[in-house]
Write a protein that binds this DNA or RNA. Structure first.
Lengths: 211, 211
DNA sequence: CCACTTTTTGACCAATTGGTAAAGACACGA
DNA sequence: TCGTGTCTTTACCAATTGGTCAAAAAGTGG
């Protein structure tokens, strides 16, 4: 059963789909799935509502499309962590890449957070098929580093959880961070988080540690 | 202009208001403010929709009531951190109290997270009037501990942010944590987070540290 | 048992919202 | 210029949803 000619998308299609997805990212990340309306997305995109539905079959397809695109971007920093590199260097570089993402892609971070917060109704399959294998693989890498004595003893699973949570916090809880910070928090965050994981993962130099 | 007799709430009023708020906490934390419907809340509470509106003037009042109640509970662990106690003990006890809350009150954690994620539209005043002063006060306490040499040098603001994010992560991102964990993650989390902040805050024993 | 207050319900409404149908505007190659 | 397929809009639903209202039903004190 042939699929028919795939038909490359026209210039206009590319432009409008991109317009819609960008507008939808704004709206979904600000109000959540249920809180977002097609009218809001249409207005933000500068198109009419039926026109939106000419490019996407419905609200859900827009949301799913965003989530799919996001997954790739989201996993990339972890993918880049190299088992062959220096453990401390690789892990700290990963932390900094995640912090860069919280700074540069806060809408994406909030979209992801909102989806997970509500039980990942649309993303659960992706978590199992894409995230889980990568997560397991990188946990094994870290475990290897620990066993080689290149890192202080640490549970890789929770280490990664804490990297995610501390970095994404600055995007997801921005409203709170803004209230509590006088100057731009991101610079301080960078120094603090670097120190946090450096102290967590450093092998004690010498002397006996208490207990 | 007298306020009239305050009229203590009847037994029935207390019971039904409590039923409604508990049901609303379920629904709001699972679907967010916009995603929740009065019908869902009514069904979860075992009451009819008009009956709900007999006890609360509208959807928003229910939400605001929950948020107000929550604020007290939420700040309590931080309030209990005692400037007179031993710094490391106090901070680690605070971390463990926060982790207890993520375990025992996940609905509350998600309600709070959802509100902040969407820019704290209803809670912003509370953040400024309640959270900010407490936060500043406790930051000063921690700063004092650092200056006394009782803790390793650390930015108190980001330290608290990282305590919040690492602990609440287990409630807010539970859907993700569940996918990635084989056994119950909370026990491992407790050990990991304890170690994380212990290493972060410990004064180096002796010897020179590299760099 | 009776008056009186509190609680509960069924019927209803206006606004919002996701989505459709069909006609019209537009682009573009022959 | 014309015709054909692409894109856009206008007008319109049906369902959902927050909320109202008046009347019925339960409590409650005397």
């Amino acid at each position: 059963m042939p699929d028919g000619p795939p038909k490359k998308p026209s210039r206009i299609q590319q432009r409008n789909r991109h317009l819609i997805l960008d507008a939808a990212l704004d709206v979904f990340s600000a109000h959540g799935y249920r809180g977002a309306t097609l009218d809001q997305i249409a207005e933000a995109a500068g198109l009419s509502k039926p026109n939106i539905l000419y490019y996407f079959s419905g609200k859900e397809e827009i949301h799913v499309t965003l989530l799919n695109q996001l997954m790739e971007t989201w996993l990339d920093p972890l993918v880049e962590m190299d088992a062959m590199g220096d453990p401390m260097t690789e892990l700290l570089a990963y932390v900094h890449r995640k912090l860069d993402m919280a700074r540069d892609l806060p809408r994406e971070s909030r979209l992801f957070a909102g989806e997970i917060l509500q039980g990942a109704p649309r993303m659960h399959p992706h978590l199992v098929s894409d995230l889980k294998p990568l997560f397991d693989e990188k946990c094994a890498v870290i475990q290897g580093w620990v066993e080689e004595g290149k890192l202080a003893p640490v549970d890789p699973h929770h280490l990664i959880f804490s990297i995610w949570s501390t970095t994404q916090h600055y995007a997801d809880f921005d409203a709170q961070v803004q209230v509590l910070s006088s100057d731009d928090p991101l610079e301080g965050a960078r120094r603090y988080i670097d120190t946090l994981f450096r102290r967590m993962l450093s092998i004690p130099t010498s002397t006996s540690q208490t207990q």
